[in-house]
Each structure stands twice: as structure tokens, then as C-alpha cells.
Simulated assay, not measured.
Amino acid sequence: MTDAPAFPATPPLALVIFDCDGVLIDSEPISLATLTRGLNEIGLAIDLEAVRARFAGTSMTSIMERVAREDGIEAPAGFVERVKAQTLDAFAAELKAMAGIAEALGLLHLPFCVASSSDPVRLRHSLGLTGLLPLFQGHVFSSAQVARGKPFPDLFLFAAERMGTAPEQCLVIEDSVPGVEAARAAGMRVVGFTGGGHWGHDRSGRDLRAAGAATVFSAHAELGRIVAESGLPRSAASPI
């Protein structure tokens, strides 16, 4: 038995905000592998699991700032653009939508949008490749549109404002610790998703729970129930 949502339902939910990479599309195994190779090439000795733990859910700008600050390695000219281009090429060959997400979106009875750390070009490219872009009807927001990316709340607050919804009426679906932290900082309800290929065999999402996710799920067939139960008062919510 897992835990019930740790938030009240006043006011009721009015918007579901989805992260993109690792939630809507199974992109993280591809993008993290490309990033790992790139970082190795510029002298950072790091493996795929360490890259996932340190950088999943954050923008390339934030990643390279951390590498410079924490590892003392400055990216050479053109590095970020090269990694982005290599990632898009790999997406064209391998990228798939997360299993069941299109069907789950079609059954949602609330407005929904995307708020992602990906840059706008990659974001629209990846959603277009997987056939999901039309489902969002232009409600696609990138960290490039705000001053600070995740784990700061700026992106989620921006998305809520553009969608005309108060933060306390939003539910965020996230697969990364920075994303969960950003949602909590924005005053939003948040649940973790662990259905992406980068999670491997352990889909418990312990780090997401520790960061503040009310519960964790790993299949989009559960999305409708998760959203419905996230809108209940804690005392009325059945265990998720």
C-alpha cells in the first residue's frame, strides 16, 4: 500500500501540468546517453547513472553552469549546440511516446499543458515526432521563457499564469527531483512518474517521494485515478 496525497483539495484541481522528458516521451535514456558521451569528451569522467542523478530534469544551461562550478570544466565553444543537435538526431531514429499517454490524455476531464526544461526547438520537435503536439493545442511552455529553470518555481508559475489557473489548483506530473522541488516551491500538488526507461528495475521513486511527491506511479493507465484522487481531501482519498 502506498501513501495518499498529502495535500488538501481546496480549491479543487483545475489544471494538470506535465513535464515532458521522461513523462510524456521516453527520451531520457537517449538524451542522458548523448549528454554522458559529450561530457566524457570534454574531460568529465562520469557515467550514465551519475548523469541521471545529477542532471535529469534540468536545462543544458543549468547543467553546464554546474559542471563549470562543481567540476571546473568549461564547455568549449559550440558544445551545447553540438549535444543538442546529436540529441535531436537520436530522437529522430529512436524516440517514442510513453506507453498509454495519448489514451490517458484523451480521457482527462481537466485542462492540461506541458512545462519542460527542454528548449523550445527540442520540445516541439520531440512532441511532434511522437504525435503528441496536437493534443496540447499550443499549451507548451519551456524554461527558456523564464529567468530560472527547475528546481526554481518560475516555469510552473508561468505555465499556470498563462493557463489562467491559480497555483494551488494545479497538479504537476514529474519524473525528476528538481521538477518535484519546483512544483512544491510553486505551491502546487505534485506526483512522481517512474515509467520511463531510465528508471531501470527500481521504479519506487524514493528520491521523488523524499523531494515531496505525494505519491508515485509508473503506468499512464493509472493517470485518471491519480488525478481524481489528487483532487480529494486527504481524509477522503483512498490509498494510491
Rank of each mutant, 00 (worst) to 15 (best):
P120K: 10
P120V: 08
P120G: 10
V121C: 00
R122A: 08
L123N: 03
R124T: 06
R124E: 11
R124N: 13
H125E: 10
H125F: 11
S126V: 06
L127F: 11
L127G: 01
L127E: 00
G128N: 14
G128T: 14
G128P: 06
G128H: 13
L129R: 15
L129W: 11
T130E: 05
T130M: 08
T130V: 13
L132T: 13
L132F: 12
L132N: 10
L133K: 14
L133Y: 08
P134I: 13
P134W: 13
L135P: 05
F136T: 15
Q137G: 14
H139Q: 15
H139R: 15
H139P: 05
F141Y: 15
S142C: 13
S142Y: 04
S143E: 12
S143K: 05
S143H: 07
A144P: 10
A144Y: 15
Q145G: 02
Q145T: 07
V146F: 12
V146S: 11
A147I: 09
R148P: 01
R148E: 05
G149T: 04
G149E: 01
G149W: 01
G149H: 02
K150T: 01
K150F: 01
K150Y: 03
P151V: 10
F152V: 12
F152A: 15
F152D: 15
P153K: 05
P153G: 11
D154L: 06
D154C: 09
L155T: 02
L155S: 00
F156V: 03
F156E: 02
L157Y: 05
L157N: 04
F158A: 03
A160S: 12
E161Q: 15
M163N: 04
M163Y: 08
M163W: 07
M163L: 13
G164M: 10
G164S: 09
T165N: 04
T165A: 13
T165W: 02
E168S: 14
Q169C: 14
Q169H: 11
C170E: 07
C170T: 13
L171G: 03
V172D: 06
V172Y: 06
I173A: 07
I173L: 14
E174H: 13
D175H: 11
D175I: 08
S176G: 12
V177W: 05
V177I: 09
V177Y: 05
P178D: 07
V180P: 01
A182D: 02
A182F: 00
A182I: 02
A183E: 04
A183I: 07
R184H: 07
A185V: 12
A185L: 11
A185Y: 07
A185D: 14
A186N: 05
G187P: 04
G187Q: 11
